[in-house]
Design a protein around this nucleic acid. Sequence first.
DNA 1: TATTGTGGACTGAACGTCTAGTTTAGTAGA
DNA 2: TCTACTAAACTAGACGTTCAGTCCACAATA
Lengths: 257, 257
Amino acid sequence: MIENSGCPLARSRTPASPRRRCAIATPLRSEAANEPKARGRRRSLQAEAAILKATLYLLERQPLRKVTADAIARRAGVSKTTIYKWWPNKSLVALDAYLAGMTEQVAMPDTGSAELDFTQQLKSVMAFYTSPLGRLFCQFLAEGQSDPGFLALFRERFLYARRDTARVMWRRGVDRGEIREEVDGEIVLDLIYGPMIFRLLAGHGSLSDRESEAVVEAVFGGLRRSKNGRRGRARPDVTVSGATVQPGVNPQEAEVV
Amino acid sequence: MIENSGCPLARSRTPASPRRRCAIATPLRSEAANEPKARGRRRSLQAEAAILKATLYLLERQPLRKVTADAIARRAGVSKTTIYKWWPNKSLVALDAYLAGMTEQVAMPDTGSAELDFTQQLKSVMAFYTSPLGRLFCQFLAEGQSDPGFLALFRERFLYARRDTARVMWRRGVDRGEIREEVDGEIVLDLIYGPMIFRLLAGHGSLSDRESEAVVEAVFGGLRRSKNGRRGRARPDVTVSGATVQPGVNPQEAEVV
DNA sequence: TATTGTGGACTGAACGTCTAGTTTAGTAGA
DNA sequence: TCTACTAAACTAGACGTTCAGTCCACAATA
């Protein structure tokens, strides 16, 4: 227990495993149970804490890509080898620091109204995501675009946990008869959070409380205009053939242009 | 005209400007008008085309970060110096290749119904974004997370053009009385596209035609359940979907990571 | 003393630059 | 018209730099 921190992404300390043991496949806290009592020098908790702290410090000031392992080591007063001893790469150090540094900054409201719950929650989430620490969310998504394994880990360790929370709010709304149950719950979550996250990434729109409110209001109210019978389509379905994607994006003959 | 291609992101050819001239601040086609007729050897259109083609080829096979300038030069049969002569960095070569290679792969439907328009458009967009070329969209967003200048350029050269198109569909819907006009148009666009783009980036959900339809239906119908019966449609009329792409054979049907 | 942690030096990949020399094209003088 | 001159683009490849990740010798500890 003392010898191993709670660092969920760190390498396993299993003696047999030499180096290239990737943390992604590593169980969370495999050791401590049937481990044959460690013999040599013990892992420095101080060094580990310093690494995570230094990582957070740097990541709050510049994008993940520009934070170097050397800089982390220097700031933490630790050798770079120590970092790579416990984490397979820089991104996972960052994710670990992020997870450790969050400590539930976003709460789950329960006001009795699903719409109000989601409004408060979205405002809270966006306030966090636009903070120095929260901005890491985008950095991780960005990193994931060139590292599928990392993206999967990020989903599992962060995204899904968040969605589980939000799903509870959705479920309550459905049970209370506030939310149409024929809309898939996963889509509901993406309807609520997707628009603002898109803005967060692309930077094309504001992210203030007002927008969070407007998004939830629109999602709940719908775009369709309901008064004096003008709810539906103006005309019946018309198939437009030219609206589809052009073929020829075959992966094989991808020599476009 | 012959001497300069339409490459919108390339460096300006102004003789006075030596190197460090960033394309971001460069006017699109400043030359050709009052330029004192070029003297020396002319820019090789062949080399430029080869660079863009090679870049696309590589980018359709691996993420932007893993495509090196050396690899582009090698595949294009061109000196690396030639690349850096015309583009300030790799990312802008990629963006240029992307813009040049798209040639309007996604059309704007006009069916007479805003909801149907958006459904078809979203399906079309997502089919493109999940194609090898379209996947670059995510790469650019990712790149932009550590390079604000690039992100701004991406917004201007790509995102805003797309949104202008989509805004037309929204406007038509409002004018026809189909869409509640009190919902801000920019938010409408993000409501439609945000959820799927979020999925595209995080890889936590499917991106098939079915989801596109469900998103638009939910956005138009709203989540809120009215007291007397339901407000939105239980099932969207998606009869058109069969006319466009066959779901079974669709490569975009698969869950993307 | 066996085992593990640590630090500095090291390797390799990649970006982007620089130099030297070659090719192409306009210009000017014979 | 022919030819030398000059400006610009191109090629090849070496180079400087930064950074990720590794190696190895040594220090700390059960």
